[in-house]
Amino acid sequence: MHFQDQTFNQSIVALSHHYQHGFEEPLHQHRVSQLLHITSGVLRVYIEQQCWVIPPHRGLWIPTGIPHRLLAVGSVDVKTLFFDPLARADLPDVCGIFQVSSLLRELIISATDIEPPILPGTRDERLLELVLDELRTIHLVDFNVPLPYSSDLAQFCQRVQDRIEHPWSVSDAAALLQVSERTVSRKFHHETGLGFGEWLRRSRLLKSMELLAQGYSVIQTALAVGYDSPSAFTAMFKRRIGLAPTEYIP
């Protein structure tokens, strides 16, 4: 864990990491902004009441001072860029997942090969400036599963995630919590910002990404997250991710 108590005297510091499956990094925060770019495997990042899942070829932006913890799913290779928060006035100030363009990917890889000091007027300085320019083009999206904060709803959601293949419904939650379906729906939306159906779809999608990263086949993954038809699962996955599961598998 870097730059928790210190900053640095250059605009960007780039590092490479390899995490074995199951590796956990405890809750921490940085005094600088952070970009995580996954090249293989899946990284699960917990930020406040949300779980972000970063698949290959995407990045997660974490602004300065945001507490977070990490969990590696599969064998994970990640490029981490730390940014001086004063490097540019227009650096994003919210968390978000984004598609890493071909140019930005190559710039990130090149940046990890740079060793300090960064001398003015050099290729290394110009390369890092181009990274900052490319950050202006990224489009951050929500790619996370919000977690409820009340204990009863949180316990129900954990039960759902433990048996994600089950055909869960709002009526299941109402029966288990001994309240009306209307009360469950209202409370669920209030605490997560999502309806239960969308929350369940996101949970299944993110779980499927993790399973694919661990080597599960498309059929195995579809069944494991509650789809009877691999074709229905493939259609959902491609609609949400932009790639078919067979294209996604690293």
Rank of each mutant, 00 (worst) to 15 (best):
M1S: 15
F3L: 06
T7P: 02
N9F: 05
I12E: 05
H17V: 03
Y19H: 14
H21F: 00
F23Y: 12
S33T: 06
L36Q: 12
T39Q: 10
S40Q: 15
E48P: 04
Q50F: 01
V53P: 15
I54D: 04
R58E: 15
R58P: 15
I62M: 10
T64D: 06
H68F: 06
A72C: 03
T80Q: 11
L86Q: 15
Q99L: 07
S102R: 14
A111R: 07
I114C: 06
P117L: 00
L127Y: 04
L128E: 08
L128C: 07
L130S: 13
T137F: 14
I138Y: 10
L140D: 11
F143D: 12
P146I: 01
P148E: 00
Q155F: 12
Q155P: 01
I164A: 02
V170K: 03
L176F: 15
L176S: 11
L177S: 10
L177H: 07
L177A: 08
Q178R: 15
E181H: 04
E198D: 09
L200C: 05
L206R: 07
E210S: 07
L212A: 05
L212F: 04
G215P: 11
V218D: 11
T221E: 01
A232W: 02
L243Y: 03
E247P: 05
Y248Q: 04
I249A: 10
